[in-house]
Design a binder for these strands. Structure first.
Length: 283
DNA sequence: CGTTACCCCTGGAGGC
DNA sequence: TGCCTCCAGGGGTAAC
């Protein structure tokens, strides 16, 4: 579920409540993908100075270290202010961060998520963050940077977008949507993208993610905002999850294929495998 | 080194 | 209703 937009929407929803809050306890339930890698007591009394995001990771910064949170496939965070009654924990609430302002719970049925403590201030040197590509909404990500990163890569462009090494934060939904927006066939070998294609794709990635954040993210299954409301991006999906349905641009049935064990959706008419000249389909 | 297959885990959807 | 199979927004690791 959670790709960059969902994590960013979560961050925005928690920022005011968590920044400045003091951690009073951290309780762990069933094991997640990785252990905390610290004694929960370590966090006691620390003040959360900032809530940041890197790719799909949420970073709770304190003077002593950073709590790195990843939502995996099915994770979501729920916040209950201290003034409100704390709802009973569900069977899938596996982490509870208690603060002087309220309680934050991580609900993650599949437990692919993680909460990791990284001591010190150099959180970006953490193995999970170090190899991430540039932030897609930053200046550092543009057509030229994308072109450079794809040089000599023979793999199909779509799985490469998912790798997090070329650009951070793009998951299966938004990879499909961005490639549709850029009118690029997801099977195209990455090195075959010309500068103009890279420019279009970089812009498409940025615009797709920005639009999704503005709409509050996607809610295909169980994603919920910290207030329990759902996002609206899925109402705008052009190809994701629409196999067999007509393309909104040209009417051709949307195709689904499997690439690197993940479903890919695309319009075989609008999205062309490289060509020397103008691809078809306008939006 | 780059690319791909396999796994971790649980729940929902659809077929029978 | 119950059981079975397939599928799912991620990503490290092992194997080619």
């Amino acid at each position: 579920m959670p790709e960059l937009p969902e994590v960013e929407v979560t961050r925005l929803g928690l920022d005011a409540a968590l920044c400045g809050a003091h951690i009073t306890a951290l309780r762990l339930g069933k094991p997640l993908r990785w252990p905390l890698q610290a004694d929960p007591q370590t966090l006691h009394g620390l003040r959360i100075d900032a809530l940041q995001r890197r790719g799909k990771y949420l970073l709770m910064r304190t003077a002593q270290g950073t709590l790195i949170v990843h939502l995996g496939m099915s994770g979501s965070l729920r916040w209950t202010p201290a003034q409100q009654p704390l709802p009973p924990a569900s069977a899938h609430d596996h982490v509870e961060l208690q603060t002087d302002r309220g309680v934050l719970r991580l609900r993650d049925p599949r437990r692919f998520g993680a909460v990791i403590w990284h001591p010190g201030t150099e959180v970006h040197s953490h193995p999970l963050l170090r190899a991430l590509g540039p932030e897609p909404l930053s200046e550092r990500f543009d057509g030229a940077a994308l072109c450079q990163a794809l040089r000599g890569r023979s793999a199909a462009i779509k799985p490469l977008l998912l790798s997090q090494h070329i650009v951070a934060g793009v998951g299966n939904i938004y990879a499909c949507e961005a490639l549709f927006r850029a009118r690029i066939d997801p099977r195209t070998p990455a090195s075959r993208l010309r500068p103009a294609d890279c420019q279009r794709l970089a812009t498409a990635v940025r615009e797709t993610l920005q639009q999704a954040v503005a709409l509050g993210g996607s809610s295909l299954r169980d994603f919920a905002h910290t207030n329990g409301h759902l996002g609206d991006f899925q109402l705008q999906a052009q190809v994701y999850g629409r196999a067999g349905q007509p393309c909104h641009v040209c009417g051709t049935p949307v195709r689904s294929i499997v690439q690197a064990q993940r479903s890919t959706y695309f319009c075989p008419n609008c999205q062309k495998i490289l060509k020397s000249r103008s691809p078809g389909g306008k939006r």
